[in-house]
Amino acid sequence: MGKAKYLSAVEQGMVVGARRTGLSVSRTATLLCFSCSTFYQELPHKLTEQDRQLLKCVLHKNHLSSVTTLTTEYQTASGSNVSTKTVRRELHEMGFHGRAATHKTKITMHCPNSLLEW
């Protein structure tokens, strides 16, 4: 793996300007001759550390809820307007991942009656 390239203040300004005009990340990267992964390393978090702590508290109260439910509960608790995509991204970065158990067939031993009488 190569070393991560961090953008200078001028380059960051060019990226922000291009993104505010409505260009996608990939189109901006092509125009400015950067890789898309460079942009994703540079993107700031939308939530502050206090917001993350509040999100973690909301999650621990309702850890079986869906992301949309968590988002609405977080919005009412914090008063900020964030999308479900932002909440999902922040939860992934904090180490929380949604997992569902697989349904497994029940395996039982089938014995004829003659073997049970032994």
Rank of each mutant, 00 (worst) to 15 (best):
H103P: 00
R19A: 11
R89W: 05
R27E: 14
K106H: 04
L91Q: 04
G17I: 03
T108F: 11
H60R: 13
L31Q: 10
L115W: 07
H60L: 15
S37P: 00
G17E: 09
L91H: 01
S65C: 10
L31M: 14
F34I: 11
V16F: 07
W118V: 14
M1A: 15
T71V: 09
N81A: 11
E49V: 13
A29H: 05
W118L: 15
L54C: 13
T38G: 06
K46G: 11
Q53P: 01
A9N: 02
C57K: 14
S8D: 07
S26R: 08
F39N: 05
T21H: 03
F96I: 10
P44M: 08
A29Y: 06
F96S: 07
T48P: 00
L7Q: 05
H92C: 11
V82T: 01
M14F: 02
L31W: 08
Q53V: 10
L32G: 01
G98K: 14
T68Y: 06
V82K: 06
M94N: 02
S83C: 13
F39H: 02
G22L: 13
T71H: 09
N62V: 12
R27F: 06
C57V: 10
T102S: 08
V82G: 01
G79A: 09
Q50N: 12
E90T: 12
V87L: 15
K61N: 14
P44N: 07
T68R: 10
L116A: 04
K61G: 11
R52Y: 04
C111P: 01
T86G: 03
R52L: 14
S78N: 08
K106A: 10
A18H: 00
L31D: 05
A101D: 00
V16S: 07
R19H: 02
H97R: 10
R27L: 13
A77M: 11
Y6F: 12
L116N: 07
Q75T: 02
T76E: 15
L70H: 05
C36T: 09
R20K: 10
V15W: 00
Y6V: 07
K85W: 04
K61F: 06
Y74G: 03
K85S: 13
V82M: 06
A9L: 13
K61I: 13
R19S: 09
K5M: 12
D51G: 08
H60G: 07
G17W: 01
G79L: 06
T86V: 15
V82N: 06
S37T: 09
S24Q: 02
Y6D: 07
E11S: 04
T38R: 07
F39I: 12
K56Q: 15
T84M: 09
N113P: 08
L64E: 12
T108C: 08
S80I: 12
T105C: 14
Q41C: 15
E90K: 02
R88W: 05
L54Y: 04
L59H: 03
T21Y: 06
F96T: 03
S8G: 09
R89S: 12
R20S: 15
G98I: 05
S26C: 09
L54T: 04
H92M: 10
L70R: 05
C57P: 00
S65I: 03
K106L: 13
E11A: 12
I107A: 08
S66W: 02
L32W: 00
T76S: 15
Q75V: 12
A29E: 06
F96G: 03
L91K: 04
T69Y: 05
L70M: 13
S65P: 00
L91S: 01
T21W: 07
K61D: 14
V25N: 02
V10Y: 15
S35K: 08
E42C: 13
S35F: 01
